[in-house]
Simulated scan of single mutants.
Amino acid sequence: MNDAPLDHAAELARTREFFAVRAADWEVRFPDDGPRYEAAVAELGLHPGQAVLDAGCGTGRALPALRRTVGLDGTVLGLDLTPEMLQQAARAGRAAVAALVVGDCGQLPVRTAALDAVFAAGLIAHLPEPAANLAELARVTRPGGRLALFHPIGRAALAARHGRRITPEDLRAEPNLRPLLAGAGWRLERYVDEDSRFLALAVRVG
């Protein structure tokens, strides 16, 4: 018997439960992250009229910056697994700048090669099947499109926040992330891991 579907569903349920109880005060807990989100969005190199997905958008901190970058003629989609996070995004007025969708990054409601870019803040640590999920992000992105894997603090600072140490198995370590992305259809072009931010920029190949 193959338990993979059950494990996948159980992992999604755990992630949803984790964020549901934290949604209401999420931005209060991290009040100073906004400028770092804006800087990361700027590095995606988007242009007016383009289409972008914020995968695992949470309360939608990146959505206003994404909208400003692609303009009124562009498309901005904010997708998150947790309805409570999207409810907070709507309360913050972010439904006015993006379409907010409850969904799973493993099965995106987006047609193939429809997007110019994907922005993903804090996402990779919560993907139940990282290789398959990154491949799904590649599916919906045109060749030459870009992916930004971002966190407003670096790996060491994040581990310290949670009372842990970085391990060699960390998927975000460059020696692990580069081949993981390559196998999913991405080429890692820039990697930054410092106390003030984590940013991996990749390009869709093929």
Rank of each mutant, 00 (worst) to 15 (best):
A125Q: 11
V28T: 14
H126W: 11
V76A: 01
M85A: 02
L81Q: 00
W186M: 08
T59Y: 07
N176M: 12
P35E: 09
T112V: 08
A120Q: 01
P143A: 13
R29I: 09
T69D: 14
D3L: 13
P35V: 12
A113N: 13
R61S: 08
A20G: 01
T141F: 11
V52M: 10
G206K: 05
P31K: 04
T112I: 03
D195I: 07
A117R: 03
L149V: 06
A200C: 14
A202I: 05
P109S: 09
A131F: 10
E169S: 06
T167I: 13
E174M: 13
I153A: 09
L115C: 10
L171G: 06
L6C: 10
R178N: 11
V118K: 02
R165Q: 14
V118H: 07
V140K: 00
L149D: 05
P83R: 00
D73C: 04
V28K: 04
V118W: 06
P64W: 01
L127N: 03
G183L: 02
A95I: 03
Y37H: 15
P109C: 11
L63C: 10
A120G: 04
A40Q: 08
G106Y: 11
G58A: 06
L100H: 03
F19D: 10
A40V: 02
R36G: 05
W26L: 08
H162Y: 15
G56N: 05
V21A: 12
R197G: 03
N2Q: 12
L77R: 03
A89W: 02
G103R: 00
A42H: 05
T15N: 10
A42C: 01
G60K: 03
R29P: 07
V203Y: 09
V52E: 09
P31L: 10
L188H: 04
L6S: 15
A182T: 15
Q50L: 07
E194R: 15
V140A: 06
L188E: 06
G49R: 00
D32E: 14
